[in-house]
Design a protein around this nucleic acid. Structure first.
Ligand SMILES: [Mn+2]
Ligand SMILES: [Mn+2]
Ligand SMILES: [Zn+2]
Ligand SMILES: [Zn+2]
Lengths: 144, 144
DNA sequence: GGCAAACTTGAAAGTGATAATCAATTACAA
DNA sequence: TTGTAATTGATTATCACTTTCAAGTTTGCC
Protein backbone atom coordinates (compact mmCIF):
# COMPACT_ATOMS: atom_id res chain seq x y z
CA UNK A 1 0.00 0.00 0.00
CA UNK A 2 2.72 2.44 0.92
CA UNK A 3 4.76 0.54 -1.62
CA UNK A 4 2.11 0.94 -4.30
CA UNK A 5 1.87 4.67 -3.75
CA UNK A 6 5.61 5.10 -3.86
CA UNK A 7 5.64 3.21 -7.12
CA UNK A 8 2.78 5.32 -8.47
CA UNK A 9 4.56 8.51 -7.57
CA UNK A 10 7.91 7.51 -9.02
CA UNK A 11 6.14 6.46 -12.21
CA UNK A 12 4.49 9.86 -12.31
CA UNK A 13 7.83 11.58 -11.78
CA UNK A 14 9.44 9.58 -14.55
CA UNK A 15 6.60 10.03 -16.98
CA UNK A 16 6.63 13.79 -16.42
CA UNK A 17 10.37 14.10 -16.90
CA UNK A 18 10.80 15.26 -13.32
CA UNK A 19 13.59 14.20 -10.98
CA UNK A 20 13.88 12.02 -7.96
CA UNK A 21 15.23 13.97 -5.02
CA UNK A 22 16.06 13.39 -1.38
CA UNK A 23 13.41 15.93 -0.35
CA UNK A 24 10.65 14.27 -2.33
CA UNK A 25 11.51 10.90 -0.86
CA UNK A 26 11.46 12.27 2.66
CA UNK A 27 8.21 14.14 2.20
CA UNK A 28 6.53 11.15 0.57
CA UNK A 29 7.61 8.83 3.37
CA UNK A 30 6.43 11.30 5.95
CA UNK A 31 3.11 11.93 4.23
CA UNK A 32 2.33 8.24 3.79
CA UNK A 33 2.86 7.56 7.48
CA UNK A 34 0.99 10.65 8.65
CA UNK A 35 -2.62 11.01 9.71
CA UNK A 36 -5.31 11.85 7.21
CA UNK A 37 -6.58 15.38 6.61
CA UNK A 38 -3.48 17.22 7.73
CA UNK A 39 -2.98 20.78 6.59
CA UNK A 40 0.16 21.90 4.80
CA UNK A 41 1.11 23.83 7.91
CA UNK A 42 0.66 20.74 10.10
CA UNK A 43 2.72 18.60 7.78
CA UNK A 44 5.45 21.16 7.42
CA UNK A 45 5.82 21.79 11.13
CA UNK A 46 5.97 18.11 11.98
CA UNK A 47 8.33 17.28 9.18
CA UNK A 48 10.56 20.13 10.20
CA UNK A 49 11.17 18.50 13.58
CA UNK A 50 13.02 15.62 11.93
CA UNK A 51 14.28 17.43 8.85
CA UNK A 52 14.96 21.08 9.60
CA UNK A 53 16.57 21.65 6.24
CA UNK A 54 13.48 21.17 4.13
CA UNK A 55 11.75 24.37 3.11
CA UNK A 56 8.11 25.28 3.26
CA UNK A 57 7.95 25.90 -0.48
CA UNK A 58 9.30 22.45 -1.17
CA UNK A 59 6.71 20.79 1.03
CA UNK A 60 4.03 22.90 -0.59
CA UNK A 61 5.12 22.01 -4.12
CA UNK A 62 5.59 18.36 -3.30
CA UNK A 63 2.12 18.00 -1.81
CA UNK A 64 0.76 19.56 -4.99
CA UNK A 65 2.67 16.97 -6.97
CA UNK A 66 1.20 14.20 -4.83
CA UNK A 67 -2.26 15.47 -5.65
CA UNK A 68 -1.42 15.77 -9.33
CA UNK A 69 -0.04 12.25 -9.39
CA UNK A 70 -3.21 10.89 -7.85
CA UNK A 71 -1.81 9.58 -4.58
CA UNK A 72 -3.24 12.47 -2.57
CA UNK A 73 -6.23 14.76 -2.69
CA UNK A 74 -6.73 18.31 -1.52
CA UNK A 75 -9.81 18.97 0.59
CA UNK A 76 -11.34 22.08 2.05
CA UNK A 77 -13.43 21.97 5.18
CA UNK A 78 -14.08 25.67 5.21
CA UNK A 79 -11.58 26.65 7.87
CA UNK A 80 -9.35 28.39 5.36
CA UNK A 81 -6.74 25.62 5.35
CA UNK A 82 -6.22 23.15 2.55
CA UNK A 83 -5.91 19.63 3.89
CA UNK A 84 -4.48 16.53 2.27
CA UNK A 85 -5.76 12.99 2.35
CA UNK A 86 -4.43 9.74 0.98
CA UNK A 87 -6.13 8.39 -2.10
CA UNK A 88 -6.63 4.68 -2.44
CA UNK A 89 -7.51 3.24 -5.81
CA UNK A 90 -11.17 2.42 -6.16
CA UNK A 91 -12.09 3.82 -2.79
CA UNK A 92 -14.35 6.79 -2.06
CA UNK A 93 -15.70 8.35 1.09
CA UNK A 94 -17.30 11.51 2.39
CA UNK A 95 -16.82 13.33 5.69
CA UNK A 96 -18.34 14.15 9.05
CA UNK A 97 -16.64 17.24 10.47
CA UNK A 98 -16.96 18.22 14.11
CA UNK A 99 -17.34 21.97 14.43
CA UNK A 100 -16.28 21.85 18.07
CA UNK A 101 -13.12 19.74 18.22
CA UNK A 102 -12.29 19.44 14.55
CA UNK A 103 -12.47 15.66 14.47
CA UNK A 104 -13.07 14.22 11.04
CA UNK A 105 -14.77 10.90 10.40
CA UNK A 106 -15.21 9.23 7.05
CA UNK A 107 -18.21 7.37 5.74
CA UNK A 108 -19.41 5.64 2.63
CA UNK A 109 -22.99 5.43 1.49
CA UNK A 110 -23.66 3.76 -1.79
CA UNK A 111 -27.31 4.78 -1.83
CA UNK A 112 -26.48 8.45 -1.55
CA UNK A 113 -23.97 8.10 -4.37
CA UNK A 114 -26.62 6.51 -6.57
CA UNK A 115 -29.12 9.22 -5.78
CA UNK A 116 -26.55 11.84 -6.72
CA UNK A 117 -26.23 10.18 -10.09
CA UNK A 118 -29.99 10.28 -10.49
CA UNK A 119 -30.13 13.96 -9.65
CA UNK A 120 -27.39 14.67 -12.15
CA UNK A 121 -29.14 12.61 -14.80
CA UNK A 122 -32.34 14.54 -14.29
CA UNK A 123 -30.46 17.75 -15.07
CA UNK A 124 -28.47 16.32 -17.96
CA UNK A 125 -25.43 17.02 -15.82
CA UNK A 126 -22.21 15.01 -16.03
CA UNK A 127 -20.64 14.60 -12.58
CA UNK A 128 -16.86 14.83 -12.38
CA UNK A 129 -16.53 15.05 -8.62
CA UNK A 130 -18.69 15.75 -5.65
CA UNK A 131 -18.42 17.00 -2.13
CA UNK A 132 -20.58 15.82 0.73
CA UNK A 133 -19.77 16.98 4.21
CA UNK A 134 -21.85 16.84 7.35
CA UNK A 135 -20.90 19.48 9.90
CA UNK A 136 -21.93 19.31 13.52
CA UNK A 137 -21.00 17.76 16.85
CA UNK A 138 -19.21 14.44 17.09
CA UNK A 139 -20.36 11.91 19.68
CA UNK A 140 -17.72 13.03 22.19
CA UNK A 141 -18.41 16.73 21.94
CA UNK A 142 -22.10 16.10 22.00
CA UNK A 143 -21.96 14.37 25.37
CA UNK A 144 -20.03 17.13 27.12
CA UNK B 1 -40.95 37.83 0.11
CA UNK B 2 -38.68 40.81 -0.39
CA UNK B 3 -40.90 42.47 2.14
CA UNK B 4 -40.49 39.63 4.62
CA UNK B 5 -36.70 39.73 4.34
CA UNK B 6 -36.60 43.46 4.79
CA UNK B 7 -38.70 43.06 7.88
CA UNK B 8 -36.47 40.26 9.14
CA UNK B 9 -33.37 42.35 8.64
CA UNK B 10 -34.76 45.46 10.27
CA UNK B 11 -35.86 43.35 13.21
CA UNK B 12 -32.35 41.96 13.42
CA UNK B 13 -30.89 45.46 13.31
CA UNK B 14 -33.22 46.65 16.04
CA UNK B 15 -32.70 43.67 18.26
CA UNK B 16 -28.93 44.05 18.00
CA UNK B 17 -29.00 47.75 18.78
CA UNK B 18 -27.63 48.58 15.34
CA UNK B 19 -28.71 51.43 13.16
CA UNK B 20 -30.71 51.82 10.01
CA UNK B 21 -28.68 53.57 7.36
CA UNK B 22 -29.05 54.69 3.79
CA UNK B 23 -26.22 52.36 2.72
CA UNK B 24 -27.78 49.31 4.34
CA UNK B 25 -31.11 50.03 2.71
CA UNK B 26 -29.51 50.40 -0.69
CA UNK B 27 -27.41 47.27 -0.36
CA UNK B 28 -30.35 45.23 0.90
CA UNK B 29 -32.56 46.39 -1.96
CA UNK B 30 -29.86 45.61 -4.44
CA UNK B 31 -29.07 42.22 -2.95
CA UNK B 32 -32.70 41.12 -2.85
CA UNK B 33 -33.18 41.90 -6.52
CA UNK B 34 -29.88 40.38 -7.62
CA UNK B 35 -29.17 36.91 -8.93
CA UNK B 36 -28.28 34.08 -6.60
CA UNK B 37 -24.73 33.05 -5.84
CA UNK B 38 -23.06 36.35 -6.58
CA UNK B 39 -19.64 37.02 -5.16
CA UNK B 40 -18.89 40.06 -3.04
CA UNK B 41 -16.85 41.42 -5.92
CA UNK B 42 -19.76 40.93 -8.36
CA UNK B 43 -22.19 42.62 -6.04
CA UNK B 44 -19.88 45.51 -5.28
CA UNK B 45 -19.06 46.25 -8.90
CA UNK B 46 -22.68 46.19 -9.99
CA UNK B 47 -23.86 48.22 -7.04
CA UNK B 48 -21.13 50.75 -7.69
CA UNK B 49 -22.61 51.53 -11.10
CA UNK B 50 -25.71 53.03 -9.50
CA UNK B 51 -24.22 54.14 -6.23
CA UNK B 52 -20.59 55.16 -6.65
CA UNK B 53 -20.34 56.50 -3.14
CA UNK B 54 -20.73 53.22 -1.32
CA UNK B 55 -17.47 51.69 -0.21
CA UNK B 56 -16.28 48.15 -0.63
CA UNK B 57 -15.86 47.69 3.10
CA UNK B 58 -19.44 48.70 3.70
CA UNK B 59 -20.75 46.20 1.17
CA UNK B 60 -18.52 43.54 2.71
CA UNK B 61 -19.72 44.24 6.24
CA UNK B 62 -23.34 44.51 5.21
CA UNK B 63 -23.34 41.17 3.42
CA UNK B 64 -21.87 39.64 6.57
CA UNK B 65 -24.73 41.18 8.51
CA UNK B 66 -27.24 39.70 6.08
CA UNK B 67 -25.75 36.29 6.69
CA UNK B 68 -25.76 36.81 10.43
CA UNK B 69 -29.38 37.93 10.35
CA UNK B 70 -30.38 34.81 8.48
CA UNK B 71 -31.59 36.39 5.24
CA UNK B 72 -28.47 35.36 3.34
CA UNK B 73 -25.96 32.54 3.40
CA UNK B 74 -22.31 32.42 2.44
CA UNK B 75 -21.27 29.59 0.16
CA UNK B 76 -17.96 28.42 -1.18
CA UNK B 77 -17.69 26.60 -4.47
CA UNK B 78 -13.96 26.24 -4.26
CA UNK B 79 -12.99 29.04 -6.64
CA UNK B 80 -11.66 31.20 -3.84
CA UNK B 81 -14.62 33.57 -3.86
CA UNK B 82 -17.29 33.66 -1.21
CA UNK B 83 -20.73 33.80 -2.78
CA UNK B 84 -24.03 34.85 -1.29
CA UNK B 85 -27.43 33.32 -1.72
CA UNK B 86 -30.86 34.27 -0.46
CA UNK B 87 -32.27 32.22 2.34
CA UNK B 88 -35.95 31.43 2.39
CA UNK B 89 -37.54 30.18 5.57
CA UNK B 90 -38.12 26.44 5.56
CA UNK B 91 -36.42 25.89 2.26
CA UNK B 92 -33.23 23.96 1.60
CA UNK B 93 -31.34 23.00 -1.51
CA UNK B 94 -27.99 21.73 -2.71
CA UNK B 95 -25.99 22.61 -5.82
CA UNK B 96 -24.84 21.41 -9.20
CA UNK B 97 -21.80 23.44 -10.26
CA UNK B 98 -20.54 23.49 -13.83
CA UNK B 99 -16.75 23.41 -13.90
CA UNK B 100 -16.70 24.73 -17.45
CA UNK B 101 -19.04 27.71 -17.54
CA UNK B 102 -19.66 28.26 -13.85
CA UNK B 103 -23.42 27.77 -14.09
CA UNK B 104 -25.04 26.81 -10.82
CA UNK B 105 -28.25 24.82 -10.54
CA UNK B 106 -30.11 24.00 -7.37
CA UNK B 107 -31.80 20.77 -6.41
CA UNK B 108 -33.64 19.23 -3.52
CA UNK B 109 -33.64 15.57 -2.65
CA UNK B 110 -35.46 14.51 0.44
CA UNK B 111 -34.16 10.96 0.30
CA UNK B 112 -30.56 12.09 0.35
CA UNK B 113 -31.32 14.33 3.30
CA UNK B 114 -32.83 11.41 5.20
CA UNK B 115 -29.86 9.19 4.43
CA UNK B 116 -27.54 11.88 5.74
CA UNK B 117 -29.45 11.81 9.00
CA UNK B 118 -29.08 8.06 9.14
CA UNK B 119 -25.36 8.26 8.58
CA UNK B 120 -25.04 10.86 11.31
CA UNK B 121 -27.13 8.77 13.67
CA UNK B 122 -24.90 5.76 13.08
CA UNK B 123 -21.93 7.83 14.23
CA UNK B 124 -23.70 9.47 17.14
CA UNK B 125 -23.12 12.73 15.26
CA UNK B 126 -25.40 15.74 15.56
CA UNK B 127 -25.72 17.52 12.22
CA UNK B 128 -25.75 21.32 12.28
CA UNK B 129 -25.31 21.96 8.58
CA UNK B 130 -24.23 20.09 5.52
CA UNK B 131 -22.76 20.71 2.13
CA UNK B 132 -23.56 18.67 -0.95
CA UNK B 133 -22.23 19.84 -4.26
CA UNK B 134 -21.99 18.01 -7.55
CA UNK B 135 -19.26 19.35 -9.81
CA UNK B 136 -19.09 18.58 -13.52
CA UNK B 137 -20.48 19.63 -16.86
CA UNK B 138 -23.90 21.17 -17.24
CA UNK B 139 -26.14 20.02 -20.08
CA UNK B 140 -25.08 22.92 -22.29
CA UNK B 141 -21.36 22.50 -21.83
CA UNK B 142 -21.67 18.78 -22.19
CA UNK B 143 -23.18 19.05 -25.67
CA UNK B 144 -20.45 21.30 -27.03
C1' DG C 1 34.30 10.09 -14.36
C1' DG C 2 33.29 14.69 -16.49
C1' DC C 3 29.69 17.91 -18.40
C1' DA C 4 25.93 20.48 -19.80
C1' DA C 5 21.03 20.93 -19.80
C1' DA C 6 17.10 20.71 -17.21
C1' DC C 7 15.06 20.40 -12.97
C1' DT C 8 14.87 21.42 -7.88
C1' DT C 9 15.45 23.84 -3.71
C1' DG C 10 14.84 27.35 -0.04
C1' DA C 11 14.47 32.06 1.09
C1' DA C 12 12.20 35.82 -0.01
C1' DA C 13 8.87 38.52 -2.32
C1' DG C 14 4.24 38.69 -4.49
C1' DT C 15 -0.84 37.87 -4.74
C1' DG C 16 -5.62 38.13 -3.82
C1' DA C 17 -9.40 37.73 -0.91
C1' DT C 18 -10.82 38.74 3.57
C1' DA C 19 -10.65 41.33 7.81
C1' DA C 20 -9.35 45.12 10.90
C1' DT C 21 -8.25 50.12 11.88
C1' DC C 22 -9.38 54.84 12.47
C1' DA C 23 -10.78 59.57 11.85
C1' DA C 24 -14.81 61.71 10.19
C1' DT C 25 -19.75 61.25 9.76
C1' DT C 26 -24.40 59.88 11.01
C1' DA C 27 -28.33 57.93 13.63
C1' DC C 28 -31.24 58.23 17.41
C1' DA C 29 -32.90 58.43 22.15
C1' DA C 30 -33.44 61.60 25.77
C1' DT D 1 -30.82 70.03 20.24
C1' DT D 2 -27.25 67.11 22.05
C1' DG D 3 -24.41 63.45 23.63
C1' DT D 4 -23.12 58.96 22.62
C1' DA D 5 -22.66 54.97 20.21
C1' DA D 6 -22.74 53.09 15.72
C1' DT D 7 -21.33 53.53 10.80
C1' DT D 8 -18.77 54.67 6.86
C1' DG D 9 -14.99 54.59 3.42
C1' DA D 10 -10.24 54.69 2.69
C1' DT D 11 -6.46 52.52 4.11
C1' DT D 12 -3.76 49.09 6.15
C1' DA D 13 -3.05 44.52 7.83
C1' DT D 14 -3.63 39.36 7.55
C1' DC D 15 -3.34 35.02 6.03
C1' DA D 16 -2.74 31.28 3.14
C1' DC D 17 -1.05 30.31 -0.53
C1' DT D 18 1.89 31.03 -4.98
C1' DT D 19 5.71 32.62 -7.65
C1' DT D 20 10.46 34.19 -8.33
C1' DC D 21 15.28 33.54 -8.63
C1' DA D 22 19.99 32.46 -7.68
C1' DA D 23 22.41 28.51 -6.11
C1' DG D 24 22.43 23.56 -5.90
C1' DT D 25 21.18 18.66 -7.86
C1' DT D 26 20.04 15.13 -10.96
C1' DT D 27 20.48 12.72 -15.13
C1' DG D 28 21.63 11.34 -19.71
C1' DC D 29 25.55 11.22 -22.71
C1' DC D 30 30.38 11.30 -23.94
MN1 LIG E 1 -11.06 11.62 4.13
MN1 LIG F 1 -28.25 28.06 -3.98
ZN1 LIG G 1 -15.93 16.91 18.31
ZN1 LIG H 1 -21.60 24.71 -18.08
Amino acid sequence: MKRAKKKAFSDFIAQKGLKSTRQRDIILDFFLSSAQHMSLEDLYLKLRAKHPGIGYATVYRTLKLFAESGIAREIQFGDGQTRYEHVTEGEHHDHLVCTRCGAIAEFENETIEKLQDEVAAAYGFLIETHKLELYGLCAKCRSK
